[in-house]
């Protein structure tokens, strides 16, 4: 079947197998940030945006993206780099394999709410598993990023 969608801002049409998952389609299009960590929608590694809403691309047929906008971390480079610097400052990226899904969902949260509380951060990101960091460093990084964005310098930079 023919799939027409906007991937990372670029409109495209592709012939696809009707059964292909969005995750596999995106990787076949070179969006390698999208990772598979399980087969049961438990890990959050494959999180992408469908019309700016975070979804698990492992649990969605590519066909569902018909006529819609799909964004992966490749399409959010600048926004990602801003937050990434704060996670890196904590050393909380560790192996990095869960990072893209975590970054996508963290960006979604921070777009939705500028200053989430600690509990809100943990709730929102509960579906993003990480086996390396123990989560605490990721939390410190997000909190530091929020502080920076609040500060005059950060406000100006945005």
């Amino acid at each position: 079947m023919e799939l027409t969608l906007t991937l990372n801002g670029k409109k495209m049409s592709r012939l696809i197998e009707p059964g292909i998952l969005l995750l596999d389609f995106l990787r076949s299009e070179g969006c390698y940030s999208v990772k598979r960590g399980c087969e049961t929608s438990n890990c959050g590694l494959c999180t992408v945006f469908l019309d700016d809403v975070p979804v698990l691309s492992c649990s969605l047929l590519a066909a569902r993206a018909q006529g819609r906008r799909v964004t992966t971390l490749e399409g959010l480079r600048q926004e990602a780099e801003e937050l990434a610097a704060f996670i890196a400052a904590q050393g909380a990226e560790q192996c990095g394999f869960c990072n893209p899904g975590f970054m996508m969902n963290a960006i979604a949260l921070l777009r939705e709410k500028a200053e989430p509380s600690v509990d809100e951060i943990r709730d929102y990101l509960a579906g993003n598993l990480c086996r390396c960091s123990g989560y605490e460093g990721q939390l410190r990084g997000i909190l530091a990023f929020i502080e920076w964005r609040k500060s005059e310098k950060g406000g100006a930079a945005r």
Partner: peptide, 21 residues
Amino acid sequence: TSVPKKDALQLLTGQPVYTDD
């Protein structure tokens, strides 16, 4: 000193650096 990991930004921005990539 707590310097960031040399590969941190590459990993955090999802660059294709793992086996299956």
